[in-house]
């Protein structure tokens, strides 16, 4: 057993942020120690509720994550955030800019934010993100928010690591409509039309509702209009997510009985 790893994991489990950060780096760079790390992480510990936020670049996902985090913090729930952005196919580099919107939480003891690049798993979620999510989960967070950008074929993987999937769309540019036509909204539990003050928001909502008529799970999919940067509709969104979280807990409890 690698002593260094053991110490890092122990510290992480007791809530030490630098150790958690370090371990995520080891996972990210596919260190040979990863299996060891994951073994030490006991899955029996209390799992946080996992919120997946997905949608096109520029839809306002980070702003929404920032606001939702504030709501959770007001309820004294601790939050872990993983913000995923794509790596350049050509250089392997990336600019991870989601943190800009979350500045107000930087110094909050109850919030941990990690930006991750896809590093080769284009379009979907990587194994590294899944493992990092596990680490943050066992480090003692009540809520885990995973923000992913761009919607590709494999984006449906978000459903694997999230208990609730929120898809953020915006009016204009037609990209959102393209997405819908591709049937990708199927994976979302809540579809948010953000920047609802922009022209075309109503049209987009109607299109979504039309599309959902053909969805295999139409009954439980919600469509909400939000203006995240103007604080309109965010509280309602939070409540809907909370409802799902509480239902989820109830189900779990019933299962355990």
């Amino acid at each position: 057993m690698n002593q260094k790893i053991k110490i890092l994991v122990d510290r992480m489990l007791s809530g030490d942020k630098p150790s958690l950060a370090r371990l995520i780096s080891l996972i990210e760079r596919e260190s040979p120690e990863v299996p060891e790390i994951m073994e030490l992480v006991s899955p029996s510990q209390l799992q946080p509720y996992r919120v997946g936020i997905t949608g096109l670049a520029g839809a306002g996902k980070s702003t929404l994550v920032n606001k939702l985090t504030s709501f959770y913090r007001k309820q004294n729930l601790t939050v872990g955030i993983i913000a995923v952005d794509p790596s350049s196919v050509i250089t392997g580099g990336a600019v991870l800019g989601d943190r800009i919107r979350m500045q107000q939480h930087y110094l909050d003891e109850g919030v941990f934010i990690r930006s991750m690049a896809t590093r080769g798993c284009y379009g979907g979620l990587c194994k590294a993100v899944e493992d990092a999510a596990k680490l943050i989960s066992v480090s003692g967070k009540d809520i885990l928010i995973i923000e992913t950008t761009g919607i590709g074929q494999t984006e449906t993987e978000i459903t694997k690591v999230a208990d609730v999937v929120v898809m953020v769309l915006t009016p204009g540019f037609g990209d959102s409509i393209q997405l819908m036509k591709a049937g990708i909204i199927e994976i979302a539990d809540i579809i948010v039309v953000n920047k609802a003050d922009i022209e075309g928001a109503d049209i987009l909502v109607n299109e979504i509702r039309n599309e959902l008529k053909y969805s295999t799970r139409k009954k439980d999919q919600l469509v909400m209009m939000v203006q995240a940067s103007n604080d309109i509709g965010v509280a309602e969104l939070f409540e809907e997510i909370e409802k799902k979280r509480l239902e989820n807990n109830l189900e779990e409890r019933i299962l355990k009985c």
Binding site: G58, S62, V95, G97, D98, I100, R101, Q103, D231
Partner: peptide
């Protein structure tokens, strides 16, 4: 009025 944060554009 609230405060403004720059959009991430890079």
């Amino acid at each position: 009025f609230g405060e403004y944060r720059e959009p991430s554009i890079l």
